[in-house]
Amino acid sequence: KKYKIKVYVKDKKTKKWKKIKEIEVDTKEEALEAIKKLPPNYEVKIVP
Rank of each mutant, 00 (worst) to 15 (best):
K1E: 09
K1W: 10
K1Y: 13
K2E: 04
K2I: 06
Y3I: 07
Y3P: 00
Y3Q: 01
Y3H: 02
Y3S: 01
Y3K: 00
K4W: 07
K4P: 00
K4E: 02
K4N: 06
K4L: 14
I5E: 00
K6L: 15
K6R: 09
K6G: 06
V7K: 00
V7R: 00
V7H: 00
V7M: 06
Y8S: 01
Y8E: 00
Y8Q: 00
Y8L: 02
Y8K: 00
V9F: 08
V9C: 05
V9R: 14
V9K: 15
V9Q: 08
K10Y: 15
K10G: 02
D11S: 10
D11F: 04
D11W: 04
D11G: 04
D11E: 05
D11N: 12
D11V: 07
K13S: 07
K13L: 12
K13G: 07
K13T: 08
T14I: 03
T14M: 06
T14Y: 04
K15E: 05
K15L: 08
K15Q: 12
K15I: 01
K16T: 06
K16I: 05
K16F: 05
W17S: 01
W17I: 02
W17N: 01
K18I: 14
K18T: 10
K18H: 09
K18F: 10
K18R: 13
K19W: 08
K19M: 12
I20D: 01
I20A: 03
K21N: 12
K21I: 14
K21L: 14
K21Y: 15
E22M: 04
E22H: 03
E22S: 04
E22W: 02
E22Y: 03
I23K: 02
I23R: 02
I23M: 11
E24R: 06
E24W: 14
E24M: 13
E24C: 12
V25Y: 12
V25Q: 01
V25H: 03
V25C: 11
V25M: 05
V25F: 14
D26R: 06
D26Q: 09
D26F: 10
D26W: 13
D26C: 09
D26M: 09
T27Y: 03
T27E: 02
T27L: 03
T27G: 07
T27P: 01
K28W: 15
K28T: 07
K28E: 08
K28H: 14
K28P: 11
E29K: 08
E29V: 07
E29M: 11
E29F: 09
E30G: 05
E30H: 05
E30M: 08
E30W: 02
E30P: 00
E30R: 04
A31Q: 02
A31L: 13
A31P: 00
A31D: 00
L32Q: 12
L32R: 10
E33R: 11
E33P: 01
E33K: 08
E33T: 11
A34T: 12
A34R: 10
A34H: 12
A34G: 02
A34D: 02
A34W: 15
I35Q: 04
I35W: 04
K37Q: 12
K37N: 11
K37A: 14
L38G: 01
L38W: 12
L38I: 09
P39Q: 07
P39D: 10
P39C: 06
P39T: 06
P40M: 09
P40C: 11
P40N: 11
P40F: 08
P40W: 07
N41R: 14
Y42H: 08
Y42I: 06
Y42N: 04
Y42E: 03
Y42A: 11
Y42V: 13
E43C: 15
E43A: 15
E43W: 15
V44L: 05
V44I: 12
V44W: 15
V44S: 07
K45W: 15
K45D: 05
I46G: 02
I46P: 01
I46F: 06
I46M: 08
I46E: 01
I46V: 11
I46T: 03
I46L: 09
V47I: 13
V47N: 05
V47E: 11
V47T: 11
V47S: 10
P48G: 09
P48Q: 14
P48F: 13
